[in-house]
Design a protein around this nucleic acid. Structure first.
Lengths: 206, 206
DNA sequence: CCTCATTTCATATCGTTGTTATGGCAATGC
DNA sequence: GCATTGCCATAACAACGATATGAAATGAGG
């Protein structure tokens, strides 16, 4: 076989596709090929077609998001950590709107289900620690899913322009607080943990 | 001018477009024209093009959703009513997945912003009553927005197939409970109101 | 070093999509 | 009764994704 491992073209195509999305230009087969310095056939040899390329971009988006979440370190307050993970999720989405939008666009989703589950696992682990500490009574995975739902709903409405980005922090913190209260946490401690967890991310910028 | 008011073709086009979406067929210009018994130009005379038709379908979706919400009658428990509105929202989206998806698909959104605000107003009014009864401390419109965020996030993830539809009720009720707890309601009363409000809708079917 | 199988991609073409141009037709206002 | 005006059928166009075909490049076996 010729060229066993040399994805230079492959990663270039993904990169240029993401660049097109980031600049609001329509993601078209010919545009990606031209900007990558190759021809349209390259997309077919590497991804089998345009849907394959889109899926590759989507997986790249999930990878970056999970990497971002894994950059959040545990502290002795798991509720704070879970709030910090939710805040990082929302801020990452706002910082990379087109990539986040692409992550939830089309079709199947085999590989990205794995990496999405990997990201959700991180939330679940924090919820498990919170339950071990006696602060949550609900099933940890349910708490994680509900915070994901809240973050995704907030992000989706903000990125569609129906809610202003300036209100994201207030709504996000309040929703997180509600999820934790419904899970059984004590109101005062909970409010403190959520405030800490959410503000701990604010500095990071993007 | 010929034929001052006769939208027969207009509503037929919208109807057939919605029918295409409902059967998972691709919404294409020629398909809509053929199924409506007319030609492609009709779409341009009535909607100015394909985006205009899509927007008309979207507005129709909003109208139906708001009509559904306005079918929820007030009781003496505003918290229960607000929960019932959220439940109706989620159930309606699950019952009409393609229409709900179309509502949040493309671009501008002038007219539908009005009708969307009209639907949100209904939630806000219930939250205002809850605040007048001393059960909520938060700003009513914020409570309404947060329940909308939760419902939309849940609906979006369910309709994309990442969450099973069977789990929608449990997550929806828990998220609603959390929003109300974060707004300041008393836990026991709140849990009762949410349970009542959510189950009051179950019978209605679609 | 030569050959040959295999991968990769450049060119050309096709089917389908949304859009525009053109003209006929029917209904309305004077 | 006639011109005007809105409505739509027909046809052509541009752009898109997809496919066919063949040339160039690469690595393995003798």
């Amino acid at each position: 076989m010729a060229r066993t491992s040399d994805h230079r073209v492959r990663v270039e195509l993904i990169e240029q596709a993401a660049a097109l999305l980031a600049t609001d230009e329509p993601l078209t087969l010919r545009a990606v090929a031209e900007r990558s310095g190759t021809s349209t056939m390259a997309v077919y040899t590497h991804f089998g077609g345009m849907p394959g390329l889109r899926e590759a971009v989507r997986n790249e988006g999930f990878r970056r998001l999970v990497a971002r979440l894994e950059g959040i370190d545990d502290t002795e307050d798991p509720v704070r950590d879970l709030a910090a993970l939710g805040a990082a999720y929302v801020r990452h989405g706002i910082a990379h709107p087109h990539l986040y939008r692409a992550m939830f666009d089309p079709g199947t989703g085999l590989e990205n289900e794995e990496v999405a589950a990997e990201g959700l696992l991180r939330l679940t682990q924090a919820a498990e620690r919170a339950r071990a500490d006696g602060r949550f009574r609900s099933e940890p995975v349910d708490v994680a899913i509900r915070q994901w739902i809240a973050g995704h709903g907030l992000l989706d409405l903000v990125l569609r322009g129906v809610l202003p980005a300036t209100s994201a922090a207030a709504h996000g913190a309040s929703l997180t607080l509600g999820v934790f209260l419904a899970a059984g946490d004590e109101p005062e401690r909970c409010r403190l943990s959520v405030t800490e967890g959410w503000s701990s991310i604010a500095e990071h910028g993007r």
